[in-house]
Amino acid sequence: MKLRTFVVAAVAALGSTAALAASSSVVDFSNGMQGWFGTGAAGNTFSGIDSGLGNGSQAFHAVGPASHFGMVTNTSKDFLGNYTDMKSLTFSFDMTVKELAIGGPGGFPLGQDLVLELRDYDKRGPQLPYSSVWVFMGVIGGYAPASQHFSVTIADTSSNLLPAGWHGNGDADQYGGPTLPYGQTFRRILMDVDEVAITTAVPGFIYGAEQYYDVAIDNIALSAVPEPEQYSMMVAGLGLLGFTARRRKRA
């Protein structure tokens, strides 16, 4: 391949990578709720956008007693639809916990699991009005850091098998735990995501006692992961462009 042709191809790959990045979606609440709404604690004492808790901008802040805290969207087109259009993707967000306790403000500190759940209402399960796949993101409250960044990457959206760490929901297995309904697969759910939930309501668990929440969420993001060959072409192209510039400078 001639030098000029290779450089043009590298620049084209760079443009392709930029296009993928441009398709990424981020909700930092600087433009309102952007299709997201709160559940559980988000419907209590205070629930709204706070300019003092965000990571560089506003954040959604919820304060009050509830059995769980959650952020959900079923209207934001940037986060719904066919996830398999992206071969690989990363979902991430920031959370700040000012207090999570039993017994109201100043109560006994509590740690809770946090999950990301992708739901498909067109594939109703025997136990729920949807089928879903979900993954543990980490722990908030308790001894966890007050401010945390959570992230999960799906390396292959075309996989029918649940990746390590992922689980199914919509039906119950022989032990009563959550599982995907018969005939549903990881890929089938990702092909038609109708609702996304970030929540402490872990599938399969029953929540009765109220906790006191003072939490904020920010920078909810979904982005495609560029393919390795795009990175290689981009790096090679940039190197050749630098080499050409140095040759011209010497001349």
Rank of each mutant, 00 (worst) to 15 (best):
L3V: 06
V7I: 15
A12E: 01
A12W: 03
A13P: 00
L14P: 00
T17R: 10
A19M: 07
L20T: 03
L20S: 04
A21F: 10
A21W: 07
S25Y: 11
V27S: 05
D28R: 07
W36Y: 12
W36F: 15
T39V: 15
G40R: 04
A41N: 09
A42G: 14
A42R: 02
N44H: 12
N44E: 15
F46R: 05
L53D: 00
G54A: 08
S57W: 07
S57Y: 08
Q58H: 14
A59F: 04
F60H: 03
A62Q: 01
V63K: 08
A66Q: 02
S67H: 09
M71E: 08
T73D: 06
N74R: 15
G81Y: 03
G81I: 00
L89W: 01
T96K: 13
V97D: 05
K98F: 09
E99C: 07
L100H: 02
L100Y: 04
I102W: 11
G103S: 14
G103C: 13
P105N: 15
G107H: 13
L110S: 10
Q112G: 02
Q112R: 14
V115H: 01
V115N: 01
L118N: 00
D120W: 01
S131F: 08
W134K: 01
W134P: 02
V135E: 00
V135T: 08
F136P: 04
M137V: 04
G138Y: 06
G142M: 06
S147D: 05
F150S: 00
F150G: 00
S151E: 12
V152K: 08
I154Q: 02
A155E: 07
N160V: 06
L161W: 07
W166L: 12
H167G: 02
G168S: 06
N169V: 01
Y175P: 00
P178S: 15
L180W: 03
L180F: 06
Y182H: 15
I189F: 15
L190H: 05
L190N: 02
I198M: 08
T200Q: 09
A201S: 14
Y207R: 14
G208L: 12
G208H: 10
E210A: 14
E210S: 10
Q211F: 15
D214F: 02
V215D: 03
A221K: 10
P226V: 11
Y231S: 10
S232L: 15
M234Y: 06
V235N: 12
G239P: 00
G242D: 11
T244Q: 12
R248L: 05
K249I: 09
